[in-house]
């Protein structure tokens, strides 16, 4: 997370977000270009994770930065620039899904019993050697599992697992309370786990009940 916020520069340290934002607010197009180049990959991967279609993800990425530029004068720096940018990107992704009629309701929280059933002691199927051999089939299963989540679950999972946003940043980006962040993330992970465990069933070697 931190390393990608500060891309490696040649020689002198690259200017931080705040300096670039200030310069861009003053009309410096090169400063704005710097911000785009710094975050375009991450915005694109968020969009790609959300909408799946590469062209649509590219359009959303471009539109995100057009909006960022448009609203830049009103950016006060209360949140970090990237959180603000992700918020715009996430909303565009959700809007896009809504337009295509793909939005699902936020899944209702599952009952404790259901959670327990799905939190049976797992094997470390994805850990160790299996993890190292993350093959094309598993990647496609992950894709499939992500696509099966509701938009809200997918957004929070991508922002946390891929972009590494803190819970506070997630709350700001998604416009929800921190408690909701924890609950939504818990359920999103659980649903992913259920789908990936199915795929891994043959490889799972149960390690037995806990002792705690």
């Amino acid at each position: 997370m931190t390393e990608s916020r500060k891309p490696a520069g040649r020689g002198a340290d690259p200017p931080d977000d705040r300096s670039l934002v200030r310069a861009a607010q003053g009309g410096d197009a090169q400063a704005f270009r710097g911000l785009v180049e710094r975050y375009q990959r991450r915005v694109y991967q968020l969009a790609l994770g959300m909408v799946k279609d590469a062209d649509e993800a590219m359009d959303i990425t471009q539109e995100t930065f057009v909006r960022v530029h448009r609203y830049l004068p009103s950016f006060k720096g209360d949140s970090s620039f990237f959180t603000w940018t992700y918020r715009i990107a996430t909303n565009l992704c959700l809007d896009s899904a809504r337009k295509r009629g793909r939005t699902e309701r936020v899944d209702l929280d599952e009952s404790d019993a259901e959670i327990e059933a799905h939190m049976d002691p797992p094997s470390a199927a994805l850990a160790g050697p299996h993890r190292a051999a993350l093959n094309a089939e598993l990647k496609s299963k992950i894709d499939e599992a992500l696509a099966g989540l509701s938009e809200n679950h997918r957004a929070i999972l991508l922002l946390r697992e891929v972009e590494g946003l803190s819970y506070e940043e997630l709350a700001r980006t998604l416009g929800i309370r921190k408690g909701t962040v924890m609950s939504r993330l818990f359920h999103a992970r659980l649903k992913m786990q259920r789908k990936l465990r199915e795929y891994l069933a043959d490889e799972v070697k149960d390690e037995g009940e806990g002792e705690g």
């Binding site: 991967q45 994805l126 299996h130 993890r131 992950i142 991508l158 697992e161 992913m192 786990q193 990936l196």
Partner: peptide
């Protein structure tokens, strides 16, 4: 592992 796998797949 799931976190790492998702990250690796998406990135």
């Amino acid at each position: 592992a799931q976190r790492d796998a998702v990250r690796e797949a998406v990135v």
